[in-house]
């Protein structure tokens, strides 16, 4: 699917329903925001605000910033246990922790295939992408920003 494609919705099913938008070109994680104190939540929180100074019980769903700076990174050299579903033979993948400036939070995610730890360094710009996990279910992943 080229960048000019008119059909941005991928065919694959998401690994988690409602955790991210399915816009393949510019996906966003879907979080929530407390209407009282402005605190963001990922995954979404819709019940009681966790800020001890806030009694908020009202939240709005918000797309989170889709880019940020790499806080740290690693990889999974060994096959993770279930419920991770691994292709055989197992292929290691990188994992990123990305700091979102506006939300002031750090979000974890796998890194897209083809980008290993040798291509990463703390502080670099990262952006959100969608890519299937080994079992074909679509997940959010981080990749170096273009």
């Amino acid at each position: 699917m080229g960048p000019e494609s008119a059909a941005p919705v991928p065919a694959a099913l998401p690994v988690l329903d409602g955790w991210f938008t399915l816009d393949a070109r510019a996906p966003h994680l879907l979080g929530s925001r407390c209407k009282s104190c402005g605190t963001f939540y990922f995954p979404k929180l819709t019940t009681f605000c966790r800020n001890p100074a806030c009694a908020g019980e009202s939240f709005e769903e918000v797309p989170l910033s889709r880019s940020g700076r790499l806080w740290s990174y690693t990889n999974a050299c060994y096959q993770p246990p279930e419920p991770y579903v691994a292709a055989q033979p197992y292929r290691p993948f990188a994992i990123a922790a990305v700091e979102l400036k506006k939300e002031r939070m750090i979000v974890l995610g796998p890194v897209v295939r083809g980008v290993g730890v040798e291509a990463l360094h703390v502080g670099m710009d990262m952006e959100l992408a969608l890519e299937p996990l080994d079992d074909g279910r679509l997940s959010w992943k981080w990749k170096p920003a273009r």
Partner: peptide, 21 residues
């Protein structure tokens, strides 16, 4: 987090890499 393949050593490694940086 296990569904996404993020097991315990990954967290320890993120902290370790952060120290290096």
């Amino acid at each position: 987090r296990f569904r996404l393949g993020i097991s315990n050593p990954a967290y320890f490694a993120l902290y370790a890499r952060r120290r290096m940086a």
